[in-house]
Computed example of a mutant assay.
Amino acid sequence: MNETTRPTSSESTAAPAPDASGTLDEALERLHSFGPERDGWLSNHAPMAVEALVRHGQAPGVHRWIDHYRAKLEDMPDRFAEVTPDNWREALGDPRRIADWAVYFERETAERPWRDVLAEWWPRLLPGIAGGATHPVIRVGHSVRTLLAAEESGPRVGELAHALGYWAARHEPLPPLTPLAPVPDAGDALAAVARVPDRSGGIRSRLDQLTGFPQWPGAPLSDAREARDRLAELVRAATHRYAEYGHGEPIMLVHAATAPNAVLRTLPALPPELWAPSVAAAWAASAAVTAAYTPAEAVAPPAGYAAPITADEVFARAAAHGDDHTIKFTDTALDIGDATALAAALRSVELNPPAF
């Protein structure tokens, strides 16, 4: 892609104004009667998408968006068996207990500060970061961003409880992985990830085929600040990569960027000693999605593909397009904010089927 034809923005890294309309709280209350999945295991993206829409100035259209998305929502499943401090290990990774886990975390966040609950459960959940096709950790990332950016409210803390509960129910570690040769650069590391050989099944069958990843970062992290910087590097590399590889699996490949970005958004709420293991887990998630869905060949957008455009205009296009994955990926691209990231967001608008 020619540099002069990439979108540009000088405002893309500015923090949007907090939601003064109450729309997000209304939307979350509306959504919490529904389960986190449909059709067995497909994820409910609505809480994540509406958070991104509100954050980027699209609050007036949120309830209309939910009205369109309503056909993809199912009621919260029935309770199965109560999760307690004594039996949580046996309940971890049991999708029959999705509702039980939600109730457990609702109770925990009602009795203790949400940051304490998050810090206790983050290291327990990290090994299963790829569970639910990485959607649970992405949902946690959207929730934590909101809690850090504005005054806490019942629906926002409740959203964190539902997100953590979904992660606990879908917790599924990757198979044992052999550490391969270290690669210091995140973009080069993603390029070195081997594609899984059998691509005929869904994500769970593909992840079962993983055997090893390049070691990234190539050296131990020196401190928490370096962990944050390297994680930001990974998010940028995965976002940029979508511009040329997104055509392979336009929906699934967005998670190679949005999953590590969810971890990056959560870091400020975590104790610094959890930052380095968070980078390792984020790399595993991004590499796993890359291995499962990257096409054999890159396809560069044609010269002149994207005229200069602002970040706000890019997000407005994603919102009008309406697809949940496109909205969330564009939200991540705006966190990066550079020309290639915005071009990748426009590529997702082009590649994914519109919702409206």
Results as ranks from 00 to 15, higher is better:
Asn2Arg: 13
Ser9Gly: 02
Ser10Ile: 06
Gly22Val: 06
Thr23Ile: 03
Leu24Lys: 09
His32Leu: 04
Ser33Ala: 15
Glu37Trp: 10
Pro47Val: 03
Ala49Gly: 14
Ala52Asp: 04
Leu53Arg: 01
His56Gly: 00
Gly57Thr: 01
Gly61Lys: 05
Leu73Tyr: 01
Met76Asp: 06
Thr84Glu: 11
Glu90His: 12
Asp94His: 05
Arg96Asn: 12
Arg97Glu: 08
Arg97Ile: 09
Ala110Ile: 00
Pro113Glu: 06
Arg124Met: 14
Gly128Glu: 05
Gly132Leu: 03
Ala133Leu: 05
Ile138Gln: 01
Glu151Leu: 04
Ser153Pro: 07
Arg156Ile: 01
Gly165Gln: 09
Pro175Asn: 06
Leu177Ser: 05
Val183Thr: 10
Ile203Leu: 14
Ile203Thr: 10
Thr211Ser: 14
Pro214Ile: 03
Gly218His: 11
Leu221Val: 02
His240Asn: 08
Ala243Gln: 07
Tyr245Ile: 02
Gly248Cys: 10
Pro250His: 05
Leu253Gln: 12
Asn261Phe: 14
Leu264Asn: 00
Leu267Asn: 05
Leu270Glu: 04
Pro271Tyr: 13
Trp283Cys: 09
Ser286Ala: 15
Ala291Met: 05
Ala298Pro: 01
Ala306Trp: 10
Ile309Met: 09
Asp312Thr: 06
Ala320Asp: 14
His321Phe: 14
Thr330Asn: 06
Thr332Arg: 00
Ala341Trp: 03
Leu351His: 09
Asn352Glu: 14
Ala355Phe: 15
Phe356Asn: 12
